[in-house]
Amino acid sequence: MNAKIDFSKISFLIVDGDKISAQVVYDTLAYLGASHIQRVKTPNDAFDVLRTEKIDIVVCEWRLRGMDGLEFLDVMRNSTNSPNRFIPVIMLTAHSELRYVTTARDLGITEFLAKPFNAKALYSRLVSVIARPRRFINTGTYFGPDRRRRQVQFDGPDRRSLDE
């Protein structure tokens, strides 16, 4: 028997100033059965929602008016005023170059989805966030999901427990 995801049990917040892009994500989530989906255009509105409602997953565009998606992520992960430092954030962006991906990763993004995207790519990010949650790492310079996704054999020193 295949494992399933009941999306009606999860609440979503879409943070995207682009009407069409937000609509595509909204339609996809609604089709999957999500009944609690909020849409806002700016990070400030997002913080208002996050402080007053229970949101499980944030789907955020990088390019936003005022504070951009990265600053939003930085506040979510590192600010003492953050409504929820552990909330999964899926970053959608047309900035798909490697430097953008690594920047987002190092600020604690949960999943990164490059635009233009298709339904399969969006679904796989949702599955990853819900069904395969990652542990969090807290160091002096990083707070966010474990960036080491692949478990590979490594014979070097364990830098998480010892100084070099």
Binding site: K4, I5, F7
Partner: peptide, 16 residues
């Protein structure tokens, strides 16, 4: 999230 949403009865297959 996993505890709440992942099950064997209702919803969409993890592998569509």
């Amino acid at each position: 999230l996993k505890r709440r949403a992942v099950n064997f009865i209702k919803g969409f297959d993890i592998n569509l």
